[in-house]
């Protein structure tokens, strides 16, 4: 198994996440799909680290910051969605069109 195999898995995971983020109606399902994409990015970083630069530290720092970002994004995103649910009574992203021109 070489670098390209891991990168292909990561690319497929990212595209599955992108598909979910673009097509899902439920706002929380959109956040689930974004988590899939962030996982794909972390997998990419660690694959490059393992095969190209196993002695350098930077990729691992990047992954650590990426996981932190994912946690922050999930917390704030879910708080926003709970607020929307309280105000609109729905979390269907097609019904939340207050800013639509």
């Amino acid at each position: 198994m070489n670098l390209s195999d891991f990168l292909v898995v990561s690319a497929l995971l990212f595209m599955i996440g992108a598909y979910g983020a673009f097509t899902r109606k439920n706002a929380i399902a959109v956040i689930l799909s974004i988590e899939l994409m962030l996982n794909a990015a972390n997998l990419n970083f660690l694959s490059f680290w393992r095969f190209l630069h196993p002695s350098s530290m930077e990729p691992q720092i990047f992954v650590l910051v990426g996981i932190t970002l994912a946690a922050a994004e999930a917390a704030v995103g879910l708080a926003v969605i709970l607020n929307i649910y309280r105000d609109f009574g729905t979390i269907n992203v097609e019904d939340i069109s207050l800013l639509k021109g």
Partner: peptide, 28 residues
């Protein structure tokens, strides 16, 4: 991911699950 983010997601899902009818299509 499994211990924190997933539990947070499931918490929010179960708070709001009644608004989306699972018998209707979930994709646009």
């Amino acid at each position: 991911y499994v211990g924190a983010i997933l539990v947070l997601m499931l918490f929010a899902l179960m708070l709001t699950q009644d608004v989306m009818n699972p018998n209707k299509p979930q994709t646009n």
